[in-house]
Structure formats: C-alpha cells, structure tokens
Amino acid sequence: MKNTVHLVKLSVGTEDVANLAQWQTMRQAQTADGLPRHVTRMWPKREAEVLNGGSIYWVIKGQILCRQRILRLDEVEGSDGIRRCAIVLDPELIRTAPTQKRPFQGWRYLKPEDAPIDLGTARADDDALPADLSAQLAEIGVL
C-alpha cells in the first residue's frame, strides 16, 4: 500500500504468540471498547502513514513472529499525569515468517518492503519450531 509504514516492537517477557494473545485479553491491555492496545511514551511522527494500513510487527524472543493491524492512536494519561500514545490494535494476530531482529528500545518504523511475509491461514496453526532452529533457518534465509 502506498504511503504506509509499519511499526516493529519488542514484546518483552512474551514466550510465544499464544502468550501475547493471552496477555492482550487482560483488562489492563485493552481499551474501554475491549480492543487490545499497547501504550508507549512517544507518538509516531508518521501517524498518517501508520494509520494508512500499517501494522505493528511483534518481536518475540529475538524474532518477528506476528503482526496486528493498527486501528487508531489514542491519547491516554497515566497515573503520573504524563500523556502517552495507546496504539489500538485489531485483535487478530497474523503469524509471519520468523525474521531475526536484534534488541532495541521503543519501537521502530518498518517499510512495507522490509516486512516479513504473512504465513497465511494454512500455516497459522503449525507447531512453532524450537527458537534456536528457527533463528538459524531465518539467518540463512530458509524461513
């Protein structure tokens, strides 16, 4: 899609895609209308591009494993009085081809041409490979 950009974000403490989905069902990870959200300090400067079909790509244990469509950006105020950005997400987690990603702080922009491909529904329920094997295959370009 033209004029679209994605975000990539570490999912710290998450063991796998199922664990991320479980976390997002918890009340503190949801908006008032029940949608999953991720709250961050920074507001994307490229907001229009993010909201033009962008997704957040989740890095779990050093690999991008899934993505979620970004529906909107909400301003929220923490108990400390600081305004933050709530990235409101489609509840559907779309599995992607495992892609290695080094640790980083916050979130980063991801060009559509650099985003990993979706695995599709045919492989969405496949058992996950062991992390070390998946990382080695991704490193040589097999996955």
Results as ranks from 00 to 15, higher is better:
M1N: 11
M1C: 10
K2N: 13
K2S: 14
K2H: 11
N3I: 09
V5T: 12
L7T: 04
V8N: 06
V8W: 02
K9D: 08
L10M: 11
S11A: 15
V12I: 13
T14W: 09
E15G: 12
E15P: 07
V17R: 02
N19G: 13
L20S: 05
A21C: 07
W23S: 13
W23T: 12
T25N: 07
M26P: 02
R27K: 14
R27E: 15
A29E: 12
A32W: 02
A32V: 11
A32D: 15
A32H: 08
D33G: 01
L35P: 00
L35M: 10
P36L: 06
R41Y: 11
M42A: 14
W43S: 09
P44H: 05
K45N: 07
R46H: 08
E47W: 09
A48W: 00
A48H: 08
E49G: 00
E49M: 13
V50P: 03
L51I: 01
I56P: 09
Y57K: 01
W58N: 07
W58E: 00
V59Y: 05
V59Q: 05
K61M: 10
G62A: 06
I64Y: 03
L65K: 14
L65D: 00
R67S: 09
L71N: 04
L73G: 02
D74V: 01
E77N: 00
D80H: 03
G81M: 04
G81L: 01
I82A: 12
R83W: 08
C85S: 03
I87W: 05
E92P: 08
I94T: 15
R95I: 00
P98I: 07
T99I: 05
Q100I: 13
Q100H: 11
Q100G: 14
K101H: 13
K101S: 15
R102G: 12
P103I: 00
P103E: 00
P103V: 02
Q105C: 10
G106E: 04
W107M: 06
R108Y: 09
R108S: 10
L110I: 02
K111V: 05
K111Q: 15
P112N: 04
E113D: 13
D114P: 08
D114H: 06
A115C: 06
P116M: 06
P116L: 06
L119I: 12
A124N: 09
D125N: 13
D126Y: 05
D127S: 13
D127A: 15
D127V: 11
A128V: 07
A128D: 14
A128E: 15
L129D: 06
P130R: 02
P130A: 04
P130L: 00
A131C: 07
L133D: 05
S134F: 07
A135H: 11
Q136E: 14
A138V: 05
E139V: 08
E139Y: 09
I140Q: 12
L143V: 11
